[in-house]
Simulated scan of single mutants.
Amino acid sequence: MLESMFIGLSGMNAYSNGLKDVSNNITNLNSQGYKGSNLVFRDLYSSGSDLAYTGDGGGQGVSLALTQLDFSQGELRQTESSLDLAIDGEGFLVLEKDGEYFYARTGNFEIDEDGYIVLSGTDYKLTLLNENGRAEPVSVNSSRISQPEATTRVQFTDNLSSSSLGFTVADVTIFNANGEAADWSVAFTREETDPSGEWKVTVTDGNDNEIGVQTLKFNLGRPTEDSQELTFSDDERGYSVVFDFSENVTSFSSGEVSTLRAGDVDGFGIGDLQTLGVNDDGVFELQYSNEQTTELGSVALATFKDPQSIEQRSGGVFVNEDSRDVSLYSSSSELVGRVLSNRIEASNVELSSEFGNLILVQRGYQASSQVVSVANEMIQQLFQTRGQ
C-alpha cells in the first residue's frame, strides 16, 4: 500500500510539472517567436533496483519526459519597421554575443551606437555570411554615406524632328567628382537654309553660361559615325560629359514635334543612409537618399540535425551546446526558409489545445490524488485492525 501511495505521488508530481508547462505555454500566447512545449508522459517500471521505461518489474508510476519543443511556424505579422525580421520556413537567425552564438526565429532589431544590428534592448548582434561562409556581425558605420560619382555619359534617345528648326532638352542634371550638381540645358538648332541633317548643339549651365557648341550630323535619319559621341567639358567646375547619340536616336520628319530626351544619365551626388533591411534574396541592403543601394551580405540562417537539442532561453533566444550540429545557409538556399523584413513571427501556441491539456492535467492530478487518498485510508484501516 505504501508503494501505491508513492505511485500516486509520482502522478501528482508529473501532472504538477505538466501544469507548469501548460501554464508557461498559455502565458506566452503573445510572446513573439515563442515555441510551445508538448506534454509527454512516460510510464515507469522497475527492473531490479533500477527504474527504466520498460522492463519486467512492476509499474512504478509516471513521469513527465524531457520537454519537447514544437517548432511549427507561428503567424507572420506585418510591421512598420524594416528591421523587424522573421523567417518564412525552416531555420534560425544567427546572433553573436561576446564570441558565443545564439539563435532566434524572429526579432525586432535596431542599430546600436557602434553600427551593429542588434536585437532590440540587448547585445545580441545579427550575423551575416562572410566570403568564407561563416557567420559574423557587420557594422553599418562605414556605410552610412554613399560616396558621389561623377557623371561621364548622357545617353540620348527618341526622335529629333527633321521638320523643326529647334528643340531644347532642359534640366539635364549632372554631377562632378565632389558630388556637386549642375543643370545643363541642351539646345538643338539649325538654319532653314542649312542641310536638314546638321544640327548645332549648344550646352549652357543654369546661369546661361555657355559650356560648348558642337555639330550633330544625321544621314538617312541616323547619327553619322563621327558625331555619335560629343564631349562637353567645364574644366573650371570639374565636369566632362559624353553625349551619346549612338543608340535609338533618329531624325525623321514629325512636324514640329520632337521627342528627343536624356534617357540615361550616370553619376550621382553624395547620399545619406535612409532605410535598411533584407531584400527578396535575403541580403541585407542599405538604401541612400541618392537612390543608390549597398549590399552588406546574406543573413546567416542556421539549421540543426536535432532541433530538440537546442534550449529555449528568455527573449525568444535559443542556445546550442554542440557546434558540430549546426549548418549555415543563406536565404537563397532551398534547405532553409526566406528571411523577410517588416515581419514578426507570433507565438505558435494553440490556445484551444492548451485548454484541452489543462483539463487532462487537472483530471490526471485529481485521479492520482485519489490513489494517494485511498492508499492512506487503507493504511489507516490496517492500523485500526491492528488496534482491535
Results as ranks from 00 to 15, higher is better:
Ile7Ser: 02
Gly212Asn: 07
Gln73Met: 15
Arg105Pro: 08
Gly221Leu: 01
Asp114His: 10
Arg324Thr: 13
Ile310Pro: 06
Asp264Ala: 15
Asp272Leu: 09
Val169Thr: 03
Thr127Glu: 05
Asp56Asn: 13
Phe243Thr: 00
Leu216Pro: 01
Ser254Gln: 13
Ser4Tyr: 09
Val172Asp: 00
Arg237Gln: 06
Leu276Val: 01
Val339Glu: 07
Ser323Trp: 01
Glu75Phe: 10
Val138Lys: 11
Ala181Glu: 09
Thr275Trp: 02
Val339Gln: 07
Pro148Cys: 12
Met5Trp: 08
Thr79Arg: 08
Leu230Val: 01
Val213Tyr: 00
Val94Met: 01
Gln287Val: 11
Glu334Trp: 07
Ala135Asn: 15
Glu136Gln: 10
Gly263Ala: 03
Ala86Pro: 04
Ser347Lys: 08
Asp205Ser: 08
Gly48Thr: 04
Ser373Phe: 15
Asn342Tyr: 15
Asp70Ile: 04
Ser331His: 06
Glu350Trp: 00
Ala170Arg: 09
Asp264Ile: 14
Asp325Trp: 00
Thr259Lys: 00
Asp280Lys: 13
Asn17Lys: 14
Asp322Cys: 15
Glu90Cys: 02
Val241Trp: 04
Asn130Asp: 11
Val339Asn: 07
Thr168Asp: 12
Ser196Ala: 10
Gly121Trp: 06
Ser63Tyr: 10
Ser4Pro: 08
Val62Gly: 08
Gly179Asn: 05
Glu225Lys: 14
Asn342Thr: 15
Val265Asn: 05
Tyr34Lys: 04
Val283Glu: 10
Asn38Thr: 05
Asp158Asn: 08
Glu180Leu: 07
Ser142Lys: 08
Asp234Ile: 00
Arg343Lys: 12
Thr202Glu: 15
Gln370Tyr: 10
Ser4Ile: 07
Val140Leu: 08
Leu66Thr: 14
Gly269Met: 12
Asp280Met: 10
Ile117Lys: 06
Thr173Ala: 08
Gly271Phe: 11
Glu256Gln: 13
Leu301Arg: 02
Glu236Gln: 10
Gln214Met: 00
Glu113Val: 15
